[in-house]
């Protein structure tokens, strides 16, 4: 099977994730879209690893997963605490830093 197809899939997933980030307001959905983009890049990395016949891409993919896991922990905690105080998960509502 042509490895390029995996790359097309990765690009498609990334695009879906990116447009989700740009278009949606719900923090949870945004978060899932970010995860989707990360996973798309993981897929691309693994594919490159396969194409080039070395393990660099796979190692990088592991890194990404660890970072993503850490990010989820922190990010979800923030979202939950914002939801608790403001009763909304919409990112547009959290604009306290804007003057």
């Amino acid at each position: 099977m042509n490895p390029a197809n995996y790359l097309y899939l990765a690009a498609l997933l990334f695009t879906i994730g990116a447009s989700g980030v740009l278009l949606r307001r719900n923090a949870i959905v945004l978060f899932m879209c970010v995860e989707l983009m990360l996973n798309a890049s993981n897929l691309a990395l693994v594919t490159f690893s396969r194409m080039h016949g070395n393990l660099d891409g796979q190692i990088l993919a592991f890194f990404t997963m660890v970072v993503a896991a850490a990010e989820v922990v922190v990010g979800l905690a923030i979202i939950v605490s914002i939801f608790r105080t403001r009763h909304s998960a919409s990112v547009d509502d959290s604009n306290l830093m804007k003057l």
Binding site: D92, N95, K98
Partner: peptide, 10 residues
């Protein structure tokens, strides 16, 4: 600086 995350993302 609109304060909208998506603008920054864009």
């Amino acid at each position: 600086q609109t304060g909208y995350v998506r603008t920054y993302a864009l």
